[in-house]
């Protein structure tokens, strides 16, 4: 039986990601739904969060939604317009880096939260070539918390990535630290079906929440690897306030929500 929800999958995904952002966080944002989540957090629950971009703009006013991290819309009324080396230093910096939360997307994710944004098939002769790392590998290497936005499909939640672009927990069990990486990487995965997190000891993905109208079984059907669902609870649905702010203040033209 299918019940119609008073919100769209994109809306609940945006709200779920926004709830991860705490007041005072420095939010590393891409474009599209990730930027909308950052704006929603700022307007709903984290007024003193700061949005920043790998291109070097920090705390931009964003009177209009940017369509790229190099959109001139992010350069207006920023605290500073710097450059790439500064932006990545902000993430590596021991004081500011600790406050950074990143929002990333990917073509594939594995059970350890490693991401592929490079290719499907063999690297040297790929079936499908994607844009590549950009700053994804850097931010996944440097900062303690990352939100991954994904469509929940079997071909995206895979046993083995075709290419490991951005490191999560690598092979689990402390292998991230052994490789030389700081603690961090993808810490939460927000999809159109639910919210996943990673076990502190094993580094493996588990189901934390499933959305109203979705079952853990459905999530497992759409995941290629085995996943612990024993800790899963039903999500508190987006509130009226959250939805109103998202719709009326963050994206009134529905440039991203539609």
């Amino acid at each position: 039986m299918k019940t119609v929800q008073p919100y769209t999958p994109r809306e609940i995904m945006t709200i779920m990601a926004a709830r991860e952002i705490k007041n005072g966080d420095i939010v590393f944002s891409g474009t599209g739904i990730s930027m909308l989540a950052a704006m929603a957090a700022k307007n709903i629950n984290a007024p003193d969060s700061v949005i920043f971009f790998e291109t070097g703009a920090i705390d931009s006013l964003l009177e209009e939604l940017p369509f790229a991290v190099a959109d001139p819309r992010i350069m207006y009324w920023a605290a500073a317009n710097s450059r790439l080396t500064d932006a990545f230093a902000t993430m590596q910096n021991p004081i500011t880096g600790e406050k950074v939360i990143a929002i990333l997307g990917a073509a594939q994710i594995d059970r350890y939260g490693n991401l592929n944004t490079t290719c499907i098939g063999d690297y040297h002769s790929p079936e499908i070539r994607f844009s590549g790392s950009g700053g994804g590998c850097d931010v996944a290497s440097f900062v303690p918390r990352c939100i991954a936005f994904m469509q929940h499909e079997k071909r995206k939640f895979v046993k083995k990535l075709d290419y490991l672009t951005s490191p999560g927990q690598l092979g689990g069990n402390n292998s991230r630290q052994k490789a030389g990486l700081r603690p961090g990487g993808v810490s939460v995965v927000v999809t159109n079906l639910g919210v996943m997190r990673f076990d502190k000891d094993t580094g493996r993905m588990y189901l934390d929440q499933f959305y109203p109208g979705i079952t853990p079984e459905k999530i497992l059907e759409n995941t290629e690897f085995n996943m612990d669902v024993s800790r899963a609870t039903l999500t508190d649905p987006p509130t009226k306030t959250e939805l109103t702010i998202l719709r009326e203040e963050c994206d009134p033209q529905r440039l991203i929500l539609d």
Binding site: T85, F88, S133, G134, C137, P167, L170, R176, A179
Partner: peptide, 26 residues
């Protein structure tokens, strides 16, 4: 990665053979 490429240009600008980073292990 973007940081790696930026650092590669920076190393070139500084006349260094390389620069170190903590990005990309694994």
């Amino acid at each position: 990665s973007n940081y790696m490429m930026s650092l590669r240009f920076m190393a070139g600008a500084m006349g260094l053979p390389f620069l170190p980073t903590l990005s990309g292990f694994g």
